[in-house]
Amino acid sequence: MSQDYNFAYLDEQTKRMIRRAILKGLAIPGYQVPFASREMPMPYGWGTGGVQVSAATLTPDDTMKVIDQGADDTTNAVSIRKFFQKTADIDVTEETSKATVIQTRHRIPEEDLREDQILVYQVPIPEPLRFLEPRETETRKMHALEEYGLMHVKLYEDIARHGNIATAYAYPVKVEGRYVMDPSPIPKFDNPKMEMAGIQLFGAGREQRIYALPPYTQVVSLDFDDHPFDPSKADAPCDLCGATHTYLDEVIMDDAGTAMFVCSDTDYCRSRREAGHTGAQSAAQLHEVNA
């Protein structure tokens, strides 16, 4: 553990400030609590909000998992995991079930989270109304007055033009019938998982906002009676583990553009293959590894 910095990098006063914001966030689910985000030793936009929330949440007994795009081995996930290994000396894991704190960018793990698990999201733009109204002074008023008509108009215009709601990720949700919330840029496939047993914390460093969902909080994806929410995914099984219920990455295999589909949640896919599940191309992959 690095002696130059405090446990989990942040000083205690900063952690207290973040902890207070987290508690208010839990008390007002879906409301974005302003917090005095600190300048972290990694760039804004690369998870500084999630990192600050994790740093204020971790205990020395925690086991941490960090994923980006569902994978533990993507470079930014590696970088953030290393940061906490160095500054908090905590145990890390790639296995979802062994983790107590999971920091994520863009995905919710496939495996259901338990009551003792905490999911920390990295959030780039916490304001779900931002792309409809760029001014913070205006969007704050809209939340205060529960004026979400603009959002419904936008979604309805999508339907009029495309026959579908043209939002595939960061699909807005309404929390406990009150606040419209940005779920972070997770694919809409993940939205239904947000009603879960674990605690969900959202950190936006550059935009200086923290918000939260206690376990079992009602989270409803916005939709219309005649155009119900559709958590779609690629219409294919995983080519490695055969799963038909997971979110898939499409991988281009050759110059002709041949594609294969694999689970985006790499740990989930691995555990399924270890349990004997196979997909259309798992034999081929085995051959490759042995060669």
């Binding site: 690369w46 980006d68 795009q69 569902g70 993507t74 930014n76 960018r105 863009h106 995905r107 579908n164 043209a166 595939a168 990720y169 960061a170 840029p185 997770i186 694919p187 809409k188 496939f189 779609s232 995914k233 690629a234 979110y247 898939l248 990455d249 499409e250 985006s264």
Partner: peptide
């Protein structure tokens, strides 16, 4: 420039 392939995939589907 960070990976965004999960979001991109969801737009591809759509």
């Amino acid at each position: 420039k960070l990976p965004h392939y999960v979001d991109f995939q969801s737009e591809l589907e759509l």
